[in-house]
Amino acid sequence: MAKVKGAIVVDFEKCKGCEICVVSCPADVIEMTKEVNAKGYHFAYAAKPDDCTGCANCAIVCPDGVITVYKIKIVVEKIA
């Protein structure tokens, strides 16, 4: 059985904190930070990176294109 695992990288200095990625994530991975970037926006980060499936929903709705998505398949061997 293969398990898909993803990871996101947020270019946080360009993030404007609109939170559209937060509601678009089906696995509720993304949250906003309490600290702010140089522009004063709370930026998005992967609060639960282990739940990310690499679906790229967050990246395709991001108006500023700050999210980069990576994905791997982990093959888990079946126990007989």
């Binding site: 790229a56 991001c62 500023d64 294109g65 990576y70």
Partner: peptide
């Protein structure tokens, strides 16, 4: 996971690296 060969989605190179002046969440950027 964050390696070049696992890349699923990155900002296209047809867009420049300039930060857009639009308000947060604006549909223009998308």
């Amino acid at each position: 996971i964050v390696r070049e060969e696992n890349l699923v989605y990155a900002k296209t190179k047809v867009l420049t690296d300039n930060v857009m002046h639009y308000c947060p969440g604006c549909g223009h950027g998308t």
